[in-house]
Design a protein around this nucleic acid. Structure first.
Lengths: 342, 342
DNA sequence: GTGAAAGCGCTAACAG
DNA sequence: CTGTTAGCGCTTTCAC
């Protein structure tokens, strides 16, 4: 597995390695003739500079690390596509890491990214993370970090998120307008900022419309359909069951959806349902699921842009930018009780 | 962003870098006292060896590269989880790449993996790939490769796949046993081995049961629900529409599912449907989708094990192992016309 | 038991 | 214009 090095070319052409190096980078101060010979041979030999050597030399890698909880979650997959879109165009390669919602794993990932001299980090934190020192450590050493979606407020750096409050508000308001009287909320893990903000939107909408906030209509579930299914069955067998549900994520909503069907209830007649994220699968369900759309691709793009800005202007510790993107309620059959005439 | 190096430790302790290096690797021929002092200081300073330097020195990285078409596809996400499971345990880090079903992108990914001195490659090829020279090149140079799921027969190396023929056979046989008379097949991209094999299973089952193979009941679709939805609408509006569909993947089946619902047809009464892969979402659909389960996690584990074996025993060009895993038909409501009493 | 020196592949002063 | 030297961080002969 011998690879061609700059040395091989130098020997072959009776030049020094530095001359070859310069010719390859197209330095102006190189004989046109020499340059041509070098380029020609390099191409013929299929020479590729060893990125590892470059990396050792420059302490850079042209890689940016991305940590997401799960790549299997289409939301994150789309965000990553957005990240790749701008990173690729700027000459960066994206290296994907999964925390699997596990704190220990996240710490390891951060270490790997930092030690391997990645140029920066994009991260959406794991649900189990409550201690942020692993991020703080590298942030203090000047390592560029941008948080997206599940951001960490304790660290003063750029971030990108959506207006979760507004999303929660719009979803709940919609259910009210559809005539729902008892609107439940299945929230995500409590210590996640996005969970809390979506809940706050839910609460604010209820209050604004003069509805009571009933404790037993608010339950929390992990971000998985199977878990949500189980959790929500409790809600459905209550003596006074809800006639509307706002789920804090589509994965949770998918579980609710299945539970409602399994319980033999009609959607939206008996229970109206709204999710959050508008994953591609939402429109494919039966009945199709209403959901608060997040601009996932755009989120990825924005996060990558901010990170690259940070990488290219080190030290410049100006004010941190917190880009908040807008959500959009996609109304589909799962919540459409009143025919909308707009 | 200054990092502690072996040199810092040496200076501090008035030792040479080589001594420190040896102490750190716990070499036997080092004074117990010295070793203790080095270890102690290294720990106090939070010393981390620079992996890039190691990599330059050894031409290894302890990273293995994985190329999948799309991480958003839960099947691949689960395979990756399986890969990570064994890789992690063996001290390897998994670096994930996406080809996005694009040949050019796949070539770039392969180059990156090879140039960055990853220790090996696990790959499921893109649908648009018809030329395999990028794989052949590095394979000839002794670079370890293992194919999984979408394998490449032209290259003599280990691979892991499922018995696609058997899966297609079982799915079709099941539909026949459910009383379906006109069974359609929505296949994946034609040049993909797995598509062809699943189709062959379908054909064989029809023949074995004395059914005709009707050309207009076999159509091909890309692996995406939206595309499949569109494609399958043609089938449903045929004068003599099918009463059973075997879809070559769950993503295709999800599109079929939505199309059938949208057409106002009953499932399984009017049309019975079976998918392939048994993604987690399958059981959550309404009605729940029957599907041929593939051991995705196991596939990842097996592929990783084979690759690591290849990495650790280079040169040992014994016979290539082609591990074929078994499928299992999961019967759910979407295809259950006859109550099964087993 | 420990140090000096060389080298992995490449670039960047520093000389000519 | 081109060659020499040094060094990125680390391991590994080869000496002592």
């Amino acid at each position: 597995m011998k690879n061609i090095t700059i040395k091989d070319i130098a020997r072959e052409l009776n030049l020094s390695t530095s001359t070859v190096s310069r010719a390859l980078r197209d330095s102006t101060e190189i004989g046109a003739e020499t340059k041509k010979r070098v380029l020609e041979l390099a191409h013929r030999l299929d020479y590729n500079p060893n990125p590892v050597a470059l990396s050792l030399l420059s302490s850079q890698s042209n890689d940016i690390g991305v940590i997401v909880p799960e790549i299997a979650n289409p939301f994150f997959a789309i965000v990553i596509a957005g990240i790749e879109d701008v990173a690729f165009a700027q000459g960066y390669h994206v290296v994907i890491y999964q925390s699997h919602e596990d704190y220990e794993r996240e710490v390891l990932n951060v270490k790997h990214i930092y030690n391997r001299r990645k140029d920066g980090l994009l991260v959406s934190v794991a649900t189990t993370t409550t201690d942020y020192t692993h991020f703080k450590n590298i942030h203090e050493r000047g390592f560029p970090i941008v948080f997206f979606d599940r951001i960490c407020e304790e660290i003063d750096t750029h971030s990108v998120s959506v207006d979760d409050f507004e999303g929660g508000y719009k979803a709940t308001e919609h259910l009210i307008q559809q005539g729902c009287q008892r609107i439940a909320h299945v929230s995500g893990p409590d210590h996640l900022l996005i969970s809390r903000r979506r809940f706050q939107g839910y609460r604010a909408a209820l209050l604004d419309y003069g509805r009571p906030l009933l404790d037993d209509l608010v339950i929390s579930s992990p971000y998985s359909p199977a878990n949500a299914l189980e959790t929500v069955q409790l809600l459905l067998t209550m003596p006074n069951r809800p006639d509307g549900i706002f789920a804090s994520s589509d994965n949770i909503a998918i579980g609710c959806h299945a539970a409602i069907i399994a319980a033999g209830l009609r959607m939206p007649e008996d229970i109206a349902l709204v999710g959050f994220s508008d994953l591609p699968i939402a429109a494919m369900l039966n009945p199709p699921l209403s959901s608060v759309a997040q601009p996932a691709f755009e989120m990825g793009r924005s996060a990558a842009e901010l990170l690259i800005k940070l990488i290219r202007n080190p030290g410049e510790h100006g004010t941190s930018i917190n880009n908040t993107l807008k959500t959009k309620l996609m109304v589909r059959k799962s919540s459409m009780r009143v025919s909308e005439s707009n």
